[in-house]
Amino acid sequence: MNQTVTFGEVLMRLSPLGNKKFMQSNRLEFYFGGTEVNVAISIANFGGKVRHVSSISDDFIGDTAKSYLRKFGVSTAGIARSKRPLGIYFLEVGAVMRPSAISYNRSHSAFSEITPTMVDWEKSLKRCTWFHWTGITPALCEGGYLTLKEGLILAQKKGVEVSVDPTYRSGLWKYGADPRDTLSNLLQYCTIFIGGINEMNEVLGADYNYSNEDFIEASKHLLKEFPNIKKTFDKIRTPINASWHKIRSRMWNGNEYRETLDLDITHIVDRIGTGDAFAGGLIYGLQHFDDDYKAMEFAAAASALKHTYEGDVNFSSVDEVMSVLDGNTSGRFNR
């Protein structure tokens, strides 16, 4: 059976109820998430076997976070404990023309002090067939970069498929590392690239635009620059307003370009984690479907469905995603 390993920070999210701003409310809901955590739980909900590697607080909040992961069937055997607190972010959910707003409190979190000595990669990657990471992890701290690199080197030696979502966010790179050099150094170990033109331009030092033709050229450039990468996948979001978006995806697998049709999301419940739902759906699809396009369609439908769930995580099953692909998008009761 395929086993996927994810590596990254576990976060707690705090939000006012509904679409309220913090100044309107004195009651908060909390959820657990984090980019790689969201991918892990999504794959587990599809029936996949997943292990998450991280460092979390050694207190009752950390205990609760571990329990949350285990509830979905995600192994926490690779999670270290720290005396530092769990990272937190605060979210105000927007609506219509008012965008959502996020504020992070993670600079001195449990994950920020992670070091290679805290992770037993040989044990964590045992029986692993797929390893997933994002650009957020090496952006947060040098320890995250060094620990990730050790895992990637071993994964490559073991012949593990490695997917990356570079997720370039300039505001995260605060410890002195050069984003392009750091990401390029890690991309050499990867086989699947999940990202768009912005991410490609960042690692290539290029200025491709968003057209399909430029996506193909940028993908060819990326595959030439990083020969281990075999395929690129891009999720495209077209916002009408904060509550109504369209989702489609496109790919280049070294031989052909394909793209999906738009999926209309006319009432967004929660858009946090939708990119992670795409990545989780794609990983599951590539593991179970002998067809890149079908895997990408599955990923796009999984991402669209995530918009209908509160919290960071996609709770959809394989059957629910396949139902959307079969054209069942009316939301009628299942009886």
Rank of each mutant, 00 (worst) to 15 (best):
I88R: 07
R84K: 15
S109L: 10
R98S: 06
S100I: 09
Y168M: 02
H108M: 05
H108L: 02
V93Q: 14
R98W: 01
T134G: 15
M97F: 10
I114E: 06
F131D: 02
I88L: 14
L172M: 14
W173H: 03
R169F: 13
A95W: 10
R180M: 12
Y175T: 00
G151D: 06
R127I: 09
S170K: 14
Y168V: 13
T147V: 04
G143N: 11
L146E: 07
S100R: 11
V93Y: 10
P138C: 08
P99T: 08
I88Q: 03
A80W: 01
N105T: 04
W121D: 09
F90T: 08
T115C: 02
T147F: 02
W173V: 11
R98E: 03
I79A: 05
S163M: 04
S124F: 01
A110E: 00
W121P: 13
V162I: 15
I153A: 12
R81Q: 14
G94S: 02
P116A: 03
S112Q: 08
L86Y: 08
L146T: 00
L152N: 02
G143Q: 02
R127C: 01
K123P: 04
Y104L: 04
A177H: 09
T129V: 13
C128P: 05
K149W: 03
W173K: 02
V119F: 08
Y168F: 14
R81D: 00
S163Y: 14
S124L: 02
S124K: 00
Y175E: 05
F131H: 03
I79Y: 10
S112W: 11
A177S: 15
I88P: 04
I79Q: 02
L172D: 08
I114D: 08
F90Q: 01
P99M: 05
K83Q: 15
L154M: 06
S100D: 05
P85H: 03
I79P: 07
W173Y: 05
R81T: 06
E161S: 09
G87T: 03
K126F: 13
S82T: 05
S107N: 07
E92K: 07
G144T: 08
R127N: 14
C141S: 15
E113N: 12
K126I: 08
E161R: 11
A80L: 07
T167F: 01
C141L: 03
L86I: 14
G151W: 00
T137Y: 07
W133D: 07
C128S: 09
A110F: 05
R127F: 11
S112K: 01
L148E: 06
A80Y: 03
